[in-house]
C-alpha cells in the first residue's frame, strides 16, 4: 500500500482525531518536542540573561521580560485554545476536543500565575509597588479566576461529558476578557506600559534584546504542546479504559 498519496495523508490526519491514534502519535512526538523546547529555552535564557545588554532605564531588572512576556502571551493563547476546543466539543460533540479543553485549563492557569508573579516581582523595584488595580493587571487576574473557575466547575461533575459541556459555556463567556486584556493599556490609562512587540509600527526593543525573547517565546509554545499532549494522553487512557484498543495496548505491552 502506498502511504504517500495525498488522500492517504488526509486519512491519516483525520484519524488523529480518534483517541487511539492521538494516543500513539502523542507518545511518539513528546520526546522530540520536549528536546526542541529545551534547546529553545536554554538558548533564549543564555541570550537574555547573559548576552543581552543592560536596559538604559531599568538596568538588569528588565531581564524578567524573558519569562514575563512569553508567559503572558501564553496565558492568552491557551485561553484561545480552551475556547476553540470548547466550542468544537459543544457543537460537534467531539470527544478529543473535549479532552483538549479540559487539559488546557490547568496549563493556562499556570502561565497566568507565572505572568502575575513575575510581573509583581518586576513591578516592585521598577514601579515601586507589587500590585496596582489598573486595567491590565486586573483583567489578567480575572483570566486566572476564569481558568480556576473552569477547573472547579468541570471537577464538580461526575460525568466527564456533562462536565465538559458546562465548562465550555463558562469558557466561551470568558472569551470577552481576551480583547480587554490586550487593549486595556490603550483603552484606559494604566501603570502597565503599552505593547512593545505586538504594536503595528516597529518594535521599540533592540534586536539583541528581542532575539532571546522570541526564542523563549517559541520555547514556551512548545512547552505548552508537551504539557497538553502529556495531559490529553492521561485523559484518553482514563476515559477509554474499558475499550478494546486499550486492552490490546496493555496486552501488547505485557508480551513485548
Amino acid at each position: 500500500m502506498n502511504n504517500t498519496t495525498p488522500s492517504a495523508w488526509l486519512v491519516r490526519f483525520h484519524r488523529l482525531g480518534s483517541p487511539p491514534s492521538f494516543y500513539h502519535f502523542s507518545g511518539l512526538i513528546i520526546p522530540w518536542v520536549s528536546a526542541a523546547c529545551l534547546i529553545l529555552i536554554v538558548a533564549g535564557l543564555y541570550g537574555g540573561l547573559y548576552l543581552a545588554p543592560t536596559d538604559y532605564q531599568q538596568g538588569e531588572s528588565y531581564r524578567i521580560i524573558y519569562i514575563h512576556v512569553p508567559s503572558a502571551w501564553m496565558s492568552m493563547f491557551v485561553y484561545v485554545v480552551l475556547a476553540t476546543s470548547s466550542a468544537i466539543g459543544l457543537i460537534w460533540r467531539m470527544k478529543l476536543a473535549e479532552a483538549i479543553a479540559r487539559a488546557t485549563a490547568p496549563i493556562g492557569a499556570t502561565y497566568t500565575f507565572i505572568a502575575l508573579i513575575t510581573g509583581s516581582l518586576w513591578g516592585k523595584p521598577m514601579w515601586g509597588t507589587w500590585w496596582v488595580w489598573d486595567a491590565r493587571l486586573t483583567s489578567e487576574l480575572i483570566l486566572l479566576f476564569l481558568y480556576l473557575g473552569y477547573i472547579a466547575l468541570v471537577s464538580a461533575f461526575d460525568d466527564r461529558r456533562t462536565a465538559s459541556r458546562a465548562g465550555a459555556v463558562l469558557a466561551l463567556v470568558g472569551v470577552v476578557n481576551l480583547p480587554i486584556i490586550h487593549f486595556s493599556v490603550e483603552w484606559w490609562n494604566t501603570l502597565h506600559q503599552g505593547p512593545t512587540i505586538t504594536k503595528f509600527d516597529q518594535p521599540s526593543i533592540a534586536i539583541s534584546m528581542l532575539i532571546p525573547l522570541l526564542l523563549t517565546a517559541a520555547g514556551f509554545k512548545l512547552h505548552f504542546l508537551v504539557a497538553l499532549l502529556a495531559s490529553v494522553r492521561a485523559e484518553i487512557l482514563d476515559g477509554e479504559r474499558r475499550t478494546a484498543w486499550v486492552a490490546e495496548l496493555l496486552a501488547r505491552k505485557k508480551h513485548a
Partner: peptide, 25 residues
C-alpha cells in the same frame, strides 16, 4: 545589578511551575 532578589525568584518560580505542569500528567 542589585536586582538579584527580584530576578532570580521570578526565574525560580517559573521553572518550578513549568516543570510541575508537565510532570503531573
Amino acid at each position: 545589578g542589585g536586582y538579584a532578589a527580584y530576578v532570580w525568584p521570578a526565574y525560580g518560580i517559573t521553572a518550578l511551575s513549568m516543570i510541575l505542569v508537565i510532570a503531573h500528567p
